[in-house]
């Protein structure tokens, strides 16, 4: 496997001299040298940049123009949002993440998965409602099947047999429904604790809460009124399952970058 250098530097000379050297190249190929044209020099350097076509002459500034364009997001409440971003960052570091660490420490993995599955199954009610509102028939049927399987066979949603049966979870929220009916995103907002949002998605969250109150699926809403610990558990589970960490981008411009990522991700979800 490890060969001395003189064997493995494929001669670009072979290529230059053309068909005469084809047998030699084939021979080299037979003893383990890549026959495909690769302009490696005698050191073995493969000149990766030679594969690229560059803009001739003037700098086209594609990178700069694209990035400036990406910064152009409607954010009239930026000073407030930035303060909220820092508030959330601190809350995350000093309260939420320590709580999540404790939660992970005291619960076995299957319990945590069960909790996540339960709240996901619960969330499928809203997914179904929004899928229907957006007239996505096939998706609505899939989500209905998920709800049925997971609630019945998964014992109230503690297990997730539907995913294993080929029905992956598909999220449709009220923000997406509003977007479907042409509501513009409105100003960018950072919500306390919940993080990046915009006016449309915030409205969606409120509608979602209203739906949960009305439907009272599995009696959860009434139970959560009685036992606030349920709501706490839901929040802990939410933080546990969201991978994002503040400071993860490790950039002084994390705010701007997250703003772009959030906005574009929501647009893509709405198109889907």
């Amino acid at each position: 496997m490890i060969r001395p250098r003189y064997l493995s530097s494929p001669g670009s000379t072979g290529r230059r001299r053309g068909s005469l050297f084809l047998p030699v190249l084939l021979l080299l190929g037979a003893i383990g040298i890549q026959a495909a044209p690769r302009e490696a020099d005698e050191d073995g350097f493969a000149y990766p940049l030679s594969r690229l076509e560059f803009n001739p002459g003037l700098d086209q500034r594609i990178f700069e123009r694209s990035t400036f364009d990406a910064l152009d997001i409607y954010d009239p409440y930026e000073p407030f949002n930035r303060r909220m971003y820092h508030f959330n960052y601190r809350l995350d570091q000093w309260v939420l993440l320590p709580v999540v660490r404790g939660y992970r420490y005291v619960t076995p993995r299957f319990v945590r998965t069960g909790v996540t599955n339960f709240f996901n199954n619960f969330g499928d009610v809203a997914n179904l409602a929004n899928s229907l509102l957006q007239l996505k028939i096939e998706r609505s049927m899939q989500i209905t099947a998920r709800l049925l399987f997971n609630t019945v066979f998964g014992i109230g949603g503690l297990w997730d047999p539907a995913t294993r049966m080929g029905l992956p979870r598909q999220v449709e929220d009220f923000g997406q429904t509003l977007a479907y009916y042409g509501t513009p995103p409105g100003p960018y907002l950072i919500l306390p604790m919940l993080g990046p949002s915009n006016l449309r998605d915030t409205t969606g969250l409120v509608l979602n809460y209203g739906l949960e109150t009305e439907v009272n699926f599995l009696g959860y809403h009434r139970a959560s009124n009685k036992y606030p610990a349920l709501t706490a558990l839901r929040l802990v589970d939410l933080r546990h399952s969201v991978e994002f960490r503040y400071g993860q981008l490790n950039s002084p411009f994390e705010y701007e970058k997250i703003r772009y990522i959030y906005t574009r991700a929501r647009e893509l979800q709405a198109e889907d």
Binding site: M1, I2, R3, P4, R5, Y6, L7, S8, S9, G29, G32, I33, Q34, G44
Partner: peptide, 12 residues
């Protein structure tokens, strides 16, 4: 040959 670098052969 001990002093030569270890070149990993593309095929293997």
């Amino acid at each position: 040959s001990q002093l030569l670098a270890k070149d990993i052969d593309p095929a293997s």
